[in-house]
Amino acid sequence: MEFFRNFSLNFYPLSEDSLEKISELLTLKTFPKNYELVSLGQNPTNVYILKSGIIRAYNIDEKGKERTKTIYTPIMTSGNLGALIKNEPSTLIYECLTDCEVLECDYQSFYNLSLQHHEISIFHYKILEAIYIREESKILELQILDATQRYKNLQEKFPGIDNLINQYHIASYLNITPVQLSRIRKNYIN
Rank of each mutant, 00 (worst) to 15 (best):
Q180W: 09
Y48D: 02
H117W: 05
V102F: 01
I22Q: 01
F123V: 00
Y12D: 03
D99I: 05
K33C: 12
E129A: 03
E20L: 14
I49L: 03
L145C: 10
L40D: 09
T27H: 09
F123N: 02
Y35G: 10
E62M: 12
T68Q: 05
L142E: 11
I122E: 08
G64S: 07
T68L: 07
D146A: 06
A130N: 07
R185W: 07
V102P: 06
L115P: 06
L50Q: 02
Y12C: 04
N166C: 11
Y111D: 02
E36H: 14
I165D: 06
P178W: 07
K138A: 14
A130L: 04
I189V: 15
G82V: 05
P13C: 11
G41K: 02
K29G: 06
K157I: 10
Y48M: 02
F31V: 05
P159A: 09
I54M: 08
Y132M: 12
A83D: 01
G160W: 03
R56G: 08
Q143Y: 15
I75S: 14
S78N: 09
E136W: 13
N46S: 09
Y58S: 10
L103R: 01
L19G: 07
E101T: 10
K63Q: 14
H117Q: 12
Y35H: 14
P89C: 01
I75N: 15
H169N: 13
I122A: 06
L26C: 03
L26F: 00
N59Y: 14
K186T: 13
T73E: 14
F11K: 01
L50C: 04
N87F: 03
K33W: 02
D106V: 03
Y48N: 00
G79Y: 00
P32L: 10
R67P: 06
T98K: 08
S15F: 05
T27P: 06
L128K: 02
A171M: 04
A57N: 06
S114P: 04
S90Y: 00
P32M: 08
Y111R: 04
E20H: 13
Y168P: 08
D17S: 15
Q167W: 10
M1C: 09
R5N: 12
I161A: 05
E20W: 09
Q116V: 05
P13M: 09
T177P: 06
G82F: 00
D99W: 00
Y72I: 09
L92G: 04
D99R: 08
T77N: 11
Q108G: 04
I131A: 08
L9E: 15
L103I: 03
Q155N: 11
R56E: 13
I54F: 02
I71T: 07
Y107T: 01
T91S: 13
H169M: 10
K21H: 04
V47K: 03
Y168G: 10
Q167P: 08
E104P: 05
E95A: 07
I127G: 01
I54P: 05
R67A: 12
T98C: 08
Y125D: 14
G79V: 00
D106Y: 02
E141V: 04
D99K: 09
K29H: 08
S114N: 04
K29Y: 07
D17M: 14
K65N: 15
S137R: 15
E66F: 04
I170M: 04
T68M: 07
E141N: 13
K51V: 11
I49N: 00
R183Q: 14
L92A: 05
P44T: 01
L28C: 11
G41V: 03
E141G: 10
V38G: 04
L142G: 12
Y48H: 00
I133G: 07
T45H: 09
